Amino acid sequence: MRMLVIGAIGSVAVAVASVATGAPATLQSDLAAAVAAPSRTPANTARDRYRHPAETLAFFAVKPSDTVVEIWPSGGWYTEILAPYVAGKGTYWGVGPWPKGVDGLRGLQEKDAALYGAIKLAAFPADADMPRVPDGTADVVLTFRNVHNWRMGYQRGGIDYAPDAFRQMFAMLKPGGTLGVVDHRLPENADAARERSSGYVKVSTVRQLAEAAGFVFDGASEVNANPRDTADWPDGVWTLPPSYRLKDVDRAKYAAIGESDRMTLRFRKPR
Rank of each mutant, 00 (worst) to 15 (best):
Met1Lys: 01
Gly7Cys: 06
Ala8Ile: 08
Ala13Gln: 13
Gly22Cys: 03
Ala25His: 08
Ala25Val: 14
Leu31Asn: 11
Ala32Asp: 12
Ala33Ile: 12
Ala36Asp: 13
Ala37Leu: 07
Pro38Ile: 02
Ser39Pro: 04
Arg40Ile: 10
Ala43Asn: 05
Asn44Gln: 06
Thr45Gly: 05
Thr45Met: 08
Thr45Ile: 10
Ala46Phe: 07
Arg47Asn: 13
Arg49Lys: 15
His52Phe: 09
Ala58Val: 02
Phe60Ala: 11
Ala61Arg: 15
Ser65Lys: 10
Asp66Thr: 06
Pro73Asn: 01
Gly75Met: 03
Tyr78Gln: 03
Tyr78Trp: 11
Glu80Lys: 01
Leu82Gln: 00
Ala83Gly: 04
Tyr85Ser: 00
Ala87Val: 02
Gly90Ile: 01
Gly90Trp: 06
Thr91Phe: 02
Val95Leu: 05
Pro97Glu: 13
Pro97Met: 08
Lys100Gly: 14
Val102Ile: 15
Gly104Phe: 00
Leu105Ile: 14
Gln109His: 02
Asp112Pro: 03
Leu115Met: 04
Ala122Phe: 05
Ala123Phe: 13
Asp127His: 12
Asp127Gln: 12
Arg132Leu: 04
Val133Asp: 07
Pro134Asp: 08
Pro134Tyr: 09
Val140Lys: 14
Leu142Asn: 03
Asn146Met: 07
Asn146Asp: 11
Val147Glu: 00
Arg151Lys: 15
Met152Cys: 08
Tyr154Thr: 15
Tyr154Trp: 15
Gly157Arg: 06
Ile159Met: 12
Tyr161Ser: 06
Asp164Lys: 05
Ala165Arg: 04
Phe166Lys: 03
Phe166Asp: 00
Phe170Gln: 08
Leu173Gln: 06
Pro175Thr: 09
Gly176Ile: 04
Gly176Ser: 03
Gly177Cys: 08
Val181His: 05
Asp183Pro: 10
Glu188Ile: 02
Asp191Tyr: 04
Asp191Val: 09
Ala192Trp: 02
Ala192Ile: 15
Arg196Met: 12
Ser197Asp: 14
Ser197Asn: 13
Gly199Glu: 05
Lys202Glu: 12
Val203Cys: 02
Ser204Val: 10
Ser204Thr: 13
Val206Ile: 13
Leu209Met: 07
Leu209Ser: 03
Leu209Pro: 02
Ala210Leu: 07
Ala213Ser: 10
Phe217Ile: 04
Phe217Lys: 08
Asp218Asn: 11
Gly219Val: 04
Val223Gln: 10
Asn224Arg: 15
Asn226Asp: 09
Pro227Ile: 07
Pro234Asn: 15
Asp235Pro: 03
Gly236Ile: 11
Gly236Leu: 13
Val237Thr: 14
Leu240Cys: 09
Pro241His: 13
Pro241Ala: 14
Pro241Leu: 12
Pro241Thr: 12
Arg245Pro: 08
Leu246Ala: 09
Arg251Ala: 13
Ala252Gln: 13
Ala252Trp: 03
Tyr254Thr: 06
Tyr254Met: 11
Ala255Pro: 06
Ala255His: 08
Ala256Met: 02
Ala256Leu: 05
Ile257Lys: 12
Gly258Met: 04
Asp261Pro: 01
Arg262Asn: 04
Met263Leu: 09
Met263Lys: 01
Leu265Thr: 00
Arg266Trp: 00
Arg268Gln: 04
